[in-house]
Structures are given as structure tokens and as C-alpha cells.
Design a protein around this nucleic acid. Structure first.
Length: 274
DNA sequence: ATGGTGGACGCTCCA
């Protein structure tokens, strides 16, 4: 039994629906997790997703900013939308998918706050918000459901590039929000204390560079190649042996009117798991 | 050292 899931910060789902449709036609993951949909639930382009074979959805949107969504070929149940930091932001949605009988997986889809420019929580409330948000994410691993036969996948734009090989220049980005020690250490600590597995790094060793985001502000993003790995796919330990592949679709950054993030897809062969 | 681009919204915020 195979199962595949894509995470993609789409930076306006309405504007980029044609790209999404092309992607779904080409890759057809079972589940698609989007971030920065930037539209209210009422204006989410659900009809186009249904037409593409994605009849099931868990949407958590808001006007103009943020917004996350899970689209699925398979039924979704136990949909949950959480207000991290109690600010009314739409930055989380989760749901259970059951790729085969008895194999339940809760998918958590996150859009972590970017954190502003100044990496000091004392003077920059956006950075303080980011750190507080991470602290709340830390609690996920303790949830009863995870110990009651439900596996977990956590994806999204986490807005942190934790490893030296997750950025174009470790040295030059040490004081740049997304790669500061407080952020990278916190993220890696959440990962290890929660027994999460970084599936992208299971498949692509830490010795190799991986980028999932390239700034719009570069003159020539491809030539400069100053990317960062801001998008992630984690799982509970029980799912890791079932990982079959990870694909980072870098070509998507070169599509017409692209998102600044590219889609990342994990494929599983569930029979090989415990 | 600075400003560069892109999206939503509505004359500015956020990334």
C-alpha cells in the first residue's frame, strides 16, 4: 500500500491554482498540504480541487494573511484547527487520514510565523511570537492519540533552516532570522524531545544541501542559488521505516509566476512498516 | 550597507 503527501507554501492559492492543478496532474499525491493560502474559507477554490480528484478538505483560512489547508483524495476525519498563541491566526490544521484499514495517520499542517527581521525577542514582537509558537508545538508529542495507535506526520513551512546544509551560507546567515542558533537549536530540540524523524534528512543525508525556498528579491535566483530549507516533513518514529522517497521539486521555482517555495513530497510503502 | 520582489488589500501590511 503506497501513500504520498506533499507540502507546499503556495503564497496565494487563488492566484496560483493553475500551477497547483499542473502539479496535481503530474504528481498526484494522496494528500496536499498548503500554507499561505491567503483566502477565507468561503473563497477557497474547492471546485477546482474536486475536479482534480481531491474531494476531501480541511481548510483553515483567513482574509489576506496566512491560511493552511489539507486537500485529500482519501476521506479526512477528526479535523482540528488550533489557534497557536491565541492570536486568531490561521496557522494550523490537522486531520486523520486512513490510507489502509487500521492504519490511521494524523497529519498536522503548520505555517510557523516568519519572525520579522531582528532576531531579538526583547525588541521584536514578531520574533517573540515565533519562539512562543515553537514552544506550543513542542507539546504535540505528548498527546494521547499518538500513543493510541495513530501515527503522526507533521509538515509545513516551519520558517527555520536547522542544519548548516539547509542554507546557502551557514556563516552568513547565523544572524539572519530562520537560521539563528536560538531558532535552529529550538527546532532540533523539539524534534529530538518529541521523537520526531526528519524524513527529508532520512532520505537525503545532512552532507547534501537542500533548499525549498529562494527569495523573490534575488536578481537571478537560479544563478545565485541562495536558498534555504524552510519546509519540512517529520513523522512519528513508527512511520520512518515505511518512507520510500522524498522529492523536492526545485523546478517549480522556475515556473511562471511561481511561489517562492517549492513542493516537497514524501512517499511511503506502508507494508514495510511495523 | 542597502534594497531588492511579490501578494493582498485598499492608500500599507507582511513575507
Amino acid at each position: 500500500m503506497s501513500f504520498s503527501l506533499t507540502t507546499w507554501n503556495i503564497n496565494s492559492v487563488r492566484l496560483r491554482m493553475p500551477l497547483v492543478q499542473d502539479f496535481l496532474k503530474a504528481k498526484g499525491p494522496d494528500v496536499l498540504c498548503l500554507q499561505e493560502t491567503k483566502c477565507e474559507n468561503d473563497s477557497f477554490p474547492m471546485a477546482a480541487f474536486r475536479k482534480a480528484g481531491y474531494e476531501h478538505a480541511a481548510i483553515h483560512g483567513q482574509k489576506g494573511y496566512h491560511g493552511v489547508a489539507i486537500l485529500s483524495k482519501l476521506p479526512l476525519s477528526m479535523i482540528d484547527r488550533r489557534d497557536y498563541c491565541n492570536m486568531g491566526d490561521s496557522r494550523h490544521v490537522s486531520a486523520i487520514v486512513e490510507p489502509e484499514k487500521g492504519r490511521r495517520i494524523r497529519v498536522h499542517n503548520f505555517y510557523v510565523p516568519a519572525g520579522g527581521d531582528e532576531p531579538d525577542p526583547e525588541i521584536n514582537p514578531k520574533f517573540a511570537h515565533k519562539l512562543k509558537f515553537l514552544d506550543e508545538m513542542r507539546l504535540l508529542h505528548a498527546e494521547a492519540e499518538r500513543h493510541a495507535g495513530v501515527s503522526t506526520i507533521l509538515v509545513g513551512d516551519l520558517n527555520i533552516a536547522p542544519l548548516e546544509t539547509d542554507v546557502w551560507s551557514h556563516k552568513q546567515l547565523l544572524k539572519v532570522v530562520s537560521h539563528t542558533p536560538i531558532e535552529t537549536e529550538t527546532l532540533l530540540d523539539i524534534q529530538s524531545s518529541g521523537a520526531w524523524v526528519d524524513l527529508m534528512r532520512e532520505f537525503i543525508p545532512p552532507s547534501e544541501k537542500i533548499y525549498t525556498w529562494w527569495s523573490y528579491r534575488a536578481k537571478d535566483w537560479k544563478a545565485a542559488n541562495r536558498g534555504r530549507r524552510l519546509d519540512h516533513i517529520w513523522s512519528s518514529a513508527d512511520l520512518a521505516p515505511a518512507l520510500a522517497s522524498i522529492e523536492v521539486l526545485g523546478a517549480a521555482r522556475g515556473w511562471e509566476r511561481p511561489s517562492d517555495h517549492v513542493p516537497v513530497t514524501a512517499a511511503f510503502q506502508l507494508r514495510t512498516a511495523q
